[in-house]
Design a protein around this nucleic acid. Structure first.
Length: 318
DNA sequence: ACCCCAATAT
DNA sequence: TATATTGGGG
């Protein structure tokens, strides 16, 4: 019985995968001409897809991306935290304690996140790995960890419910409370049996695909610089505490052991190499227009310029 | 070192 | 509100 269901979402899932062709241009059009200029990023005109760029970017706002070290303004801000040299082996570049803008999890970015988690399997879906798989330039482990934490809560919440969370896209208004609370999460399909305690230890197989493309090594470096401190490093995992079933005290604690990463699935699938990086662009005022959202921040304070990093909407509302 | 989660801060 | 940061524990 369950198989049918699984096959269902399964098929759907695969269908939704963007083809390499789809992904390719997107990764290139993440940077608008204006931004490219602002950051001195070489951008071939032939490459960008006008349709995706239809929305116009803020006219060269004085965006102050995190760390281009050799950039204007370098007077204030100087708290070399690790002064004195507590620095670990070989790396104590100066003040990179700058605060980067808050990351905005757009549906597209979230989708990527979910895909990564789904593909990894609950087992390996830990912040670092997810981050690596996502290959989003500028994304930090903390970003992912924070999001992951919230995502897990969301999943848990859904378990206790009928879970019609299919984000029916207008069909079934799921609990207003939930919907309102988790717009973002609802915007992407909840992958597999996250909601189900099924290890689904598919013998032999397990998960199919993986959307992000291989090939095409790096094309242009010098992305938006958001990350600088991110490096490629990896490959070693540890067995974490498994079988930790914590049932909430005093409140019908059911043992939904679903996300309890413990699924004894042996072996991992092939990991694809670095995907084409998605770009993060600093956004200063308008929100991503293209999604049903009307929330505003009403930031009329006195000194609240909210600078955020956001993934460019690729237009494909999935 | 990394992970997790709850609480709290912005 | 959404995300970031912190703190306690493994």
């Amino acid at each position: 019985m369950r198989d049918e269901e699984e096959t269902s979402w399964f098929a759907r899932w695969e269908e939704q995968l963007p083809s390499p062709e789809e992904l390719m241009p997107i990764s290139q059009t993440l940077i608008t001409p204006d931004l490219a200029i602002a950051f001195d990023i070489p951008l071939s005109p032939a490459n960008h897809n006008p349709s995706l760029l239809s929305l116009h970017p803020p006219p060269v706002s004085p965006l102050r991306p995190p760390p281009p070290p050799s950039d204007l303004d370098s007077s204030d801000l100087n708290s070399p935290s690790t002064a004195g040299g507590g620095g670990p082996p070989g790396a104590d570049e100066p003040a990179r304690t700058l605060k980067r803008p808050r990351l905005v999890w757009t549906p597209q970015l979230h989708k990527r996140f979910v895909d990564a988690v789904a593909h990894l399997g609950i087992k390996n879906a830990v912040p670092k790995t997810i981050m690596q798989l996502m290959s989003v330039d500028g994304l930090t482990r903390e970003n992912v960890a924070s999001h992951l934490q919230k995502y897990r809560l969301y999943l848990k919440r859904m378990q206790g419910l009928g879970g019609s969370g299919g984000a029916g896209g207008g069909a079934g208004p799921i609990s207003a409370a939930d919907a309102a609370t988790d717009q973002l999460f609802a915007s992407a399909p909840v992958p597999h049996h996250f909601l189900n305690r099924g290890p689904v230890a598919g013998p032999g197989g397990a998960e199919p695909f993986l959307p992000y493309m291989p090939v095409t090594a790096l094309q242009h470096h010098q992305q938006i610089t958001a990350a600088m401190q991110q490096q490629q490093q990896q490959q070693y995992y540890h067995q974490r505490h498994m079988g930790h079933f914590g049932s909430p005290p005093g409140s019908g604690g059911f043992d939904h052991g679903f996300l309890n990463r413990a699924v004894p699935q042996s072996g991992m699938h092939h990991m694809v190499g670095p995907a084409p990086g998605m770009g993060l662009v600093p956004l200063t005022s308008p929100r991503v227009a293209s999604f049903g959202d009307d929330s505003e921040s009403a930031e009329r304070g006195s000194s609240g310029e909210r600078k955020v990093l956001t993934l460019f909407p690729t237009g494909t509302s999935n």
